[in-house]
Each structure stands twice: as C-alpha cells, then as structure tokens.
Amino acid sequence: MTPHNASGPSRWSDLDRPPLDATALRRGLLHEGGLWTSVDVVQRTGSTNSDLVARAGAAEEGAVLVAEEQTAGRGRLDRRWTAPPRSGLFFSVLLRPAEVPLERWGWLPLLTGVAVATGLSRAAGVDTALKWPNDLLVTVGGEERKAGGILAERAGEDGVVVGVGLNVTLRADELPVPQAGSLALADAVSTDRDTLLRSVLRSLETWYDRWRSAGGDPVTSTLQETYAAGCATLGRQVRAELPGDRALVGEAVAIDGDGRLVVATAEGTREAVGAGDIVHLRPA
C-alpha cells in the first residue's frame, strides 16, 4: 500500500526515487576556498531559476538551489519543463564572473553543458551530447533524445543564474513527449541523484574556474574546443528558426569565438547564429 499522510503522498511514496540528502551534499560540496557557498534543497517550487534570481541580491556567489519538484520550470523561449517529483535533477546556481568581460558571459550556458556532460560521463557512464545552444542529448535505442536543458538569466548588474533540468529516472510512460529521454532509459550505470549532482557541480566548478582564470577566453580555457568536440549539432544539416520569423537552412560547421553557431548555406554564405531554435534535419 502506498503510504500517505494528511498533506498528500509521503516523500517516501516512490521508493525508487529517494529524496536528496542535503546534509551529505553540503558535506561533499562546501569547502574553504571552493566555489559553492550554500546548498539548499526544497521539496517543491515553481522555478529554481526564478527563486534564485529573486534572492540574488542577498546571496553569495556559489549559492546552489535544488528542487525535488518544479511546477513551473522553464526552458528557452519560455517552454514549460515538468517532471514527477524526485525523478530528475532540477537546480540553479548563482555566478558572478567579475573577472570576465561582459561580452564573454554568453559562454556560460555552453560551459555548463560541457560541465554537465563531463560530470555525467564520470558518474552515470552515459555519453551526453550537446545540441547547440543548451540541450543535453542521450541515446535511447539508437536514437538521440533530449534529456535535459540549460537556462541562463541575468541576476542584477553582476550576476548570472544558470539553471539545469535533467531527467534521471523518468520511465517511458512518464515522458512529456516521445522525443524525450532520461539517464535511466539511456542505461546509466548509476541513477543515484546525490552522486550525479555532486559530480556535475564539481565538474562545473572546475570548468568555471578554468574559464574565469582565462578571463573568459574560450580558446585559452579550451572551452571552445571541448564544446565543439561534444556538440551533436556540428556536421548536421540544420534549420535555424531566427527572430523575426526568419529561417536559415544549411550545415552547422563551427562554433565561433562568441559561442555562436556558424551555418554554411547552399548559396555559399556563412552566418553566425547567436539566438534561435535549431532543428537537426538529418543525422551527421
């Protein structure tokens, strides 16, 4: 029988999905001189990004906010992101890259993608590909599926909140759309969310420190090269849905120094896309 309490289902009602251990996460992530300064886990919220942006004025750099359930999670273009409680990782971090020129801050979502993919490779044994600019792809039954996304938002004059949503134990019958995936469906060797979150945040700390130490230079920090190596969009025929109802079709050939996607068209032109929706038209 599923245990219930007066306020609804118990936090232990799905034993395949135990709650995160906030104390253990703090013990594993907070240390003198490290990036992470606080780790808070809430049972339920609308959006960790919205919450952290709202409290950014009083928060230190390195604040981490994690939700067991998000009811109004947002992706790019204000798309909704919802999943069952404790079925994924839904978290946001506050960064203040004062040493980095503002024009290089656009690399932060791409840096986060590299960090998440690196952390998941270590902890989950899953090969995560990056779809420009901020989707996390896994392979399920030989097919690429979206398992997560990244959203960066300005927080005041000197801050950026970066949010990550990742499907971990989502089952096939729980997928929001058939094209979605999860680490479990991609045969991850571990779906322990505590382990995965620690690995991803340690990887993010390493990459952020490297990028910041290089003044945000994507070449010196090796970020541009590493992102390109893990980017599933490069080498593909794509359609870029651009602002102003314009579309651009061609081959995605490079990531430029500003983190933009360079598309080569059949007419022989090259255009750098800085914002827009990218559709993969055929396999690489």
Score class of each variant (00 low, 15 high):
G8A: 10
P9E: 14
S10A: 15
S13D: 14
L15F: 05
P19I: 00
L20Y: 11
T23D: 02
G33T: 10
T37E: 01
D40P: 02
S47M: 12
S47V: 00
A56P: 12
A59H: 09
E61Y: 08
E68T: 02
E69V: 09
T71V: 14
R74Y: 00
G75L: 13
R79V: 15
R79E: 08
T82H: 14
P84T: 14
G88L: 06
F91P: 11
F91L: 13
R96N: 03
R96A: 01
P97C: 06
R104I: 04
G119L: 03
S121F: 07
A123R: 12
V138I: 11
R145E: 01
R145W: 00
I150D: 13
G156H: 07
G163H: 11
G165Q: 04
L170K: 11
A180K: 05
A180C: 14
A184V: 06
A186V: 06
R193P: 12
L196A: 10
S199H: 01
W207T: 02
R212Q: 08
T220I: 10
A228P: 05
A229G: 11
V238E: 09
R239Q: 15
A240N: 07
L242M: 14
G244F: 08
L248E: 05
V249E: 08
I255N: 10
I255C: 02
A266E: 13
E267V: 07
D277Q: 12
V279T: 13
L281D: 06
R282T: 15
